[in-house]
Design a protein around this nucleic acid. Structure first.
Lengths: 244, 244
DNA sequence: CCTGGTTTCGATAATCCATCGAAACTGAGC
DNA sequence: GCTCAGTTTCGATGGATTATCGAAACCAGG
């Protein structure tokens, strides 16, 4: 009896790099898999989460959309939350890369923050699903979403560093950098509370408006906002990972 | 056979005013009800939602906490969502009353908005549960949560009116009032994304910081912020409904 | 052709939401 | 006091969903 492996499930997500994808029992649909099977599953889940919400999407539905049966999903993900965690882990990379690139590059602190908020808002609007829905699930399961929280903490610290720089330089009002960073991230995410209901507005003006509000709220000289906005648009950010 | 009433369930929530609360079959726990039974159920649900999340709270658990069995809840609420809707309908009254009172009262527009954001943030932090969780559920069921959306739209229009006034008076930058109102509400709610994870900070400084950021982001002359903050604190708002 | 490893699936247990019909009580009228 | 109508609660149960277990179906190598 083949029972060498105590648990045949994938350990933690080796990705397409590790396992050379050996063949197993064919799917009942007859279709063959292109590349990593996980990609197809996550793509299906991502779309369905956006259409019916995370809780409104059953594992059975995801499986069908991905071309297999419900129990087969549990070969790749031990629990539904694990699937969700894999999804946000990818989504989180975008703003993290953006913040790092901005901090490492040129530009005034105010322009950096402006650009970050602008692009972060747009990126969240472009996600197929509502990040806040996942955020709530992650809050109930800190261990299962350890990667999510780690990345979010890193992001928060980077934003706090930006705010602190702005204060030291005399551009920003003296504020609590930690509290402000949290508020900024919350504001970016708060856009999703209304963006996904009713007809959708264009994302770019939204990002600009939010960035104006946030940076304008920190600047000591409000007149500088026009210049900051102009500079923000000129900042060059090396192309990072684009989700989906 | 007693079958005059086609549907014995409560029609829509007549409240304690209508029905004189007649007695029925006693509860298996033996306890008697004080006042409206709905109050006890909502109180139990409210607490449990805060502790384990809405989806993490079963109807059975709510029933047990309220002193009865699971099917009995369906005498008062036809679906779980109906129970949730009844809960937020109460919570929404607070900021709505606040905005109306501020608009009707004295004070500069900037101070009114500052005071609103401040108190709204604090009110949301004080809620036993996370309003955003409910917000997401409401988004998937617009008809079941018609009251929620109606009140939220009213609130949004009131804030937009504040913003428009500020622009006309020359205190605020010329911004899209509609878009700004949405962003402000989203920012208030976005605080909940981090407030409820880990150790909780004091709510009042948070409300102040968010109000500073929002109003500061709209003011043409950033120096005015100190005065606005001072005036905001002096505004008198007639005591409204306090939730729980 | 046999063996070991990979991938998929059918059957199934457990849990939760929601419904149905009946039980258990009160109060009013006779 | 007794019956009847109305109110409130409950037990039993169906349907849906998550997750597990063990076996089936395939491939590559000896």
């Amino acid at each position: 009896m083949p029972e060498k492996k105590a648990r045949p499930r994938r350990p933690a997500r080796p990705g397409a790099t590790a396992a050379p994808r050996r063949t197993g029992r064919p799917r009942s649909t007859g279709q063959t898999v292109e590349g990593d099977a996980v990609d197809g599953i996550l793509a299906a889940a991502s779309t369905l989460f956006g259409q019916h919400g995370v809780d409104g999407t059953t594992m059975s539905r995801i499986a069908t959309e991905a071309g297999l049966r419900q129990p087969s999903l549990y070969y790749y993900f031990r629990r539904k939350e694990e699937l969700i965690a894999a999804l946000v882990a990818r989504a989180n990379v975008v703003p993290l890369h953006l913040a790092r690139a901005l901090l490492a590059g040129e530009g005034s602190t105010a322009a950096q923050l402006h650009r970050f908020v602008h692009e972060d808002v747009v990126a969240l609007c472009r996600l197929p699903f509502d990040i806040n829905e996942v955020h709530r699930i992650a809050a109930r399961d800190p261990e299962g979403f350890a990667e999510y929280w780690s990345e979010r903490n890193q992001l928060q610290r980077l934003i706090a560093r930006m705010v602190r720089s702005g204060c030291r330089e005399g551009a920003f009002r003296p504020v609590d950098a930690h509290l402000t960073a949290l508020t900024v991230l919350g504001t970016d995410e708060g856009v999703q509370n209304w963006f996904r209901v009713g007809p959708r507005l264009r994302t770019d003006p939204i990002g600009l408006a939010v960035a104006d509000l946030v940076v304008g709220g920190l600047l000591i000289r409000a007149d500088d906002l026009a210049d900051v906005r102009k500079e923000s648009a000129t900042l060059v950010v090396p192309a990072g990972p684009d989700f989906r």
